[in-house]
């Protein structure tokens, strides 16, 4: 990124702060994404007569709200230079734990508590392995990805948990006001919280510092391991929240729940302009990326495109958003 940004500029221009050309590029990326979102919106309204309908659009938000919640925390984690591929499996395990609790007659408050606690525990497990034992997060979370979902399979086999209490359905199916769902409100609230956390607090600055140069960050007094520990905890917690919403929306738990979501979450983050190598990215970018992905999948769904074909688009989106700027830079050189 620095390569493309510095290209074509006077050599004496040395960016002394992060609000240099990099930030400008980032802003233009968000603008570009927004334009894409608008274009998809318009294209969808022409492609299907069912698209421009308040209730349909409200339904469309469910395509991304749960994933976006995890994507916020994942964005911070990736900016700090780590990654968590176990998020979808945390959902499976948290959902299984809640389902098991239902069999023992747990009520809604207990279920929420269990969902959050399972998410936190899984996040802590990843965090200990990565920050205390110094293991690479990619392999650790590939391992826990099998482990967490594996536990769900051990508990459930090919069965399923059902019978969630009626009021539990509110989290995934309830509406706060007219077509504004509870999940959408939660998504918006979390977006604001994460925006403040990343862009307006010391903690957020630390995350960027660690992602840009962890050694320099630790020499400037940042407790790198602790910040990363917290980020893994946050990612686990968000997965727990997503598990509550998704379980409540589906009303049942199977071990294959949320299968493959880690890919969509990472895609959302990368599409939002977060550098996969760490050090740069923003929450507004991730929010717009969430809308883009939600609109694309919903639009394709209205056109009766099967889910697995949509995943081709997601995969191409993931590679395309990283490859195109680099191809562009190569072509201009």
């Amino acid at each position: 990124m620095t390569e493309t940004a510095s290209h074509g500029q006077a050599p004496r221009h040395i960016p002394d702060r992060l609000q240099g050309p990099g930030a400008r590029l980032l802003k233009s990326w968000e603008l570009l994404l927004f334009a894409v979102a608008v274009a998809i919106f318009i294209a969808n309204s022409f492609a299907s007569p069912y698209f421009l309908n308040a209730w349909n659009l409200s339904d469309a938000t469910f395509n991304f709200t749960e994933k976006a919640m995890i994507a916020f925390a994942m964005a911070l984690l990736i900016i700090s230079g780590e990654i968590d591929l176990s998020v979808a499996s945390i959902i499976a395990l948290a959902s299984t734990a809640m389902g098991a609790a239902v069999q023992y007659g747990a009520g809604t408050p207990e279920l929420v508590l269990i969902g959050l606690a399972t998410g936190l525990a899984c996040g802590a497990f990843n965090a200990v392995l990565v920050t205390k034992m110094g293991l690479p997060s990619i392999v650790v979370t590939i391992g826990t990805m099998s482990l967490f979902r594996g536990i769900s399979y051990i508990v459930l086999g090919d069965g399923a948990y059902r019978g969630y209490p009626a009021e539990f359905a509110y989290f995934g199916q309830g509406y706060v006001f007219w077509v504004i769902s509870f999940e959408f409100v939660l998504f918006a609230l979390l977006a604001v919280l994460y925006y403040i956390l990343l862009h307006r607090t010391n903690f957020g600055r630390m995350v960027y510092a660690i992602g840009n140069n962890a050694t320099a960050a630790s020499f400037s007094g940042i407790r790198v391991a602790r910040v990363k520990f917290i980020l893994f905890l946050l990612t686990g917690l968000m997965s727990g929240i997503a598990a509550i919403c998704l379980t409540s929306r589906l009303g049942s738990t199977r071990p294959s729940i949320a299968f493959g979501w880690e890919l969509e979450v990472v895609t959302m983050v990368v599409l939002g302009g977060v550098s996969i190598l760490g050090g740069s990215g923003s929450i507004p970018g991730v929010v717009i990326a969430a809308f883009v992905m939600g609109l694309v999948t919903f639009g394709l769904g209205l056109l009766n495109v099967p889910g697995i074909v949509m995943s081709i688009f997601i995969g191409m989106l993931l590679i395309g958003v990283i490859a195109l700027p680099r191809l562009w830079a190569m072509w201009r050189r």
């Binding site: 392999v139 650790v140 391992g143 826990t144 482990l147 594996g150 399979y153 090919d158």
Partner: peptide
Amino acid sequence: FWQLAISGTAII
């Protein structure tokens, strides 16, 4: 169904 959890543990 234990297979997945076992290979996950083995990786870690």
